[in-house]
Structure formats: structure tokens, C-alpha cells
Amino acid sequence: MAAILDFVIAFLIVLGGAFALIGSWGLARLPALMSRLHGPTKATTLGVGGCLIASMLYFPSHGMSWSAHELLITLFLFITAPISANMIAKACIHGRHVYGDAVAKYEVPLPRPPHPDAEWATFGSTEAAKPE
């Protein structure tokens, strides 16, 4: 039983490390900023998640006390990852005209919102973004 648990823990640790590496590899090699966002927000988060689940299993199974902080870190990372990705995406679409040629090569042009009076909230007034 203990051997199976050890195997699961080792598998999760290696999986976590591999995903962290893949996410960072994506960050280094993908061509455009918006594509690069995909690697860290998903792969790296699951990488850390794997390490945290492994440690949640490891400490009780090796006779040490269970720590709730792992669970807290996992929750916190999964809640904050979309928010920081969203903020960086906003900074990116806001900066399209500022950075110009450095990003234009691989970026797909931004679509207009289908409604004629509407604009994306980064460019327009945020007051109007509230639903009725």
C-alpha cells in the first residue's frame, strides 16, 4: 500500500515538474504575446498543483502532520491565475499601438465588437460596461 502511495506521489512530482517546464518552454518559444499567455496560465498552474497535491499526500503518509497551507496555495493559485492572465491580456491589447512592429508580426488583428456603439472596455469608458 505504502509503495503504491509512494509511486503516486513520485508520479505527481514528476508530472508537476514536467508541466512547469512545458509551460515555461511555451513562454520562451511561442511567437506572439497573446499565444505566450496560454503556456503559463495553464501548464504552470497545473505543474504547481501537481507538486502541491503530491506534498498533501506525502506528509500524512510519512508520519508528519498534514498542513492546510498546501490546499490554500492551490486554491489561491487557481483563483488568481485567470485574473493575472486577464490583466496581462488587457495590457497587451492596450499596448498594441505603442509597441507597433515588435508585436505586429505574429499578432492577429483585434476584432471590433459587433454592436456599433460598443468598444472593448480597455479602450472605452468602464462605466458603460455594467449590465442594466
Binding site: 465588437p113 472593448w120 455594467k130
Partner: peptide
Amino acid sequence: SLTPGTVSADISTDGRHLL
């Protein structure tokens, strides 16, 4: 943002479309 190959970036000012 957390699921397959998509990241949400922005919302339109009238709150009816998600980029």
C-alpha cells in the same frame, strides 16, 4: 481562461460580448 486553449481578454463596453 483556465480551460482548453482559450484566454479571456476583455469585455465590450455594453457588456454583451466577451473577447
